[in-house]
Nucleic acid binder design. Structure first.
Lengths: 212, 212
DNA sequence: CCATAAAATTATACTCAGTATACTATTTAC
DNA sequence: GTAAATAGTATACTGAGTATAATTTTATGG
């Protein structure tokens, strides 16, 4: 025990990364559904079982950073000014996302290809939807916690659902804009414009609640 | 050929219905993931292949009425007064849903059990999410068609996403209310209250578009 | 009513994701 | 250097879904 950066830990991380890298490359190249886990294992020079040791489901080989958005959300709320309305905090967070060109607000050929690969695979699309729902649940808890509620209530769930839906639509339209105009700047504007419109509506939905 | 209500067609329909019925019963009883397609086939006294002939995916055995909401949507828009804002049409549709106690606004022990079975199965939950997204796409086309656009635009997609999200949240809260209070009437009120709040916000989001 | 075409159903064999488990090799701790 | 812990492997299984050929059932024209 007690080994942080020990050989074992480093090897594990290297193995995991190697598998994930080789898998992502294969998936982007040939499509998720046209590459079997056995092929990934072979390409990574590891047994099939080892792949499943690190990645319980095949989809996890492609979506390997689910934690990040979760962390960012909590960090954003941890730093927020006392008394600020949770929805206002979220609005600021979205702008900082766009400013720092976070993956959730990034429009490049690489992100376009990534999401095209997702769209072309039923399994990856399903996993993306699942992650969306998990984000809603998470956001609902964070919102409730921000106003000192122990549990998410109906208002928190409505707010969270609406914000995540807005993000999804805004991001999708940003990607569409990127495809049409090939400009990261106008894509970003599209994204932010839709988010602003959405927030104004969400504020109305929540006007008699502590969230807005 | 040329046989509408012929023996063959009736037998097919009977077979399909028998499979679906026996499957639904087994799933509600023992959980979707604890019943294999082979068991369904055996219980329905039919071969495994026949099950897959009628229902391409196992999930289709449980969700057997996807078309309905689609039809209802189009019917509602077909009958709408000329010049009415599409969002207003939708708002009326939701109220008529609640009045006619349509499955989408029905809160009983049976619907509760149905959705509990869904929630307990990852595969069924995934399919439910997929259907939600398909409904969004469908609604976006219907909205665009209502204002004589050939293709759904960004506003239509935002509107559709928001309305479907509202429905999902409102229905989920209605079910929660049913579980807590066991009253179809208060569940219905909860459902409608959330829909009304949502529509007021959605109207703001779409205020400079032809949809609101 | 019979022969035959068409369509429903079945048998069989396959691929692939995911799980369980026992076994081997490597690293760590003492 | 040895023993315990753990990373990795081999093997065998279940269950969904697909492809295909064989077989049964129904429809139809004479």
């Amino acid at each position: 025990m007690s080994n942080q950066g020990g050989l074992r830990e480093r090897k594990k991380e290297a193995t995991r990364q190697a598998i994930s890298d080789v898998a992502t490359e294969l998936f982007l190249e040939r499509g998720f559904d046209n590459v079997s886990v056995a092929e990934v294992a072979e390409a990574a020079e590891v047994s099939r079982m080892t792949v499943f040791n690190y990645f319980p489901r095949k989809e996890d080989l492609f979506f390997d950073r689910e934690e990040e958005s979760r962390q960012m959300l909590r960090a954003g709320f941890a730093e927020r000014p006392a008394g600020e309305a949770p929805i206002a905090t979220l609005r600021k967070l979205v702008h900082s996302l766009a400013d720092r060109v976070h993956p959730f607000a990034k429009f490049t050929d690489a992100t376009a290809k990534f999401w095209r690969t997702v769209a072309e695979s039923p399994a990856l699309s399903a996993r993306a939807r699942e992650m969306r729902d998990e984000l809603v649940d998470d956001l609902a808890s964070v919102l409730a916690a921000a106003i000192k509620r122990p549990l998410a209530d109906a208002d928190a769930r409505l707010a969270a659902s609406m914000v995540v839906t807005a993000l999804t639509v805004a991001y999708a339209e940003g990607l569409r804009e990127h495809k049409a105009r090939r400009s990261a700047a106008t894509s970003r504007e599209t994204f932010l414009r839709i988010m602003e419109r959405s927030f104004s509506g969400i504020a109305i939905m929540l006007k008699d609640t502590p969230y807005a």
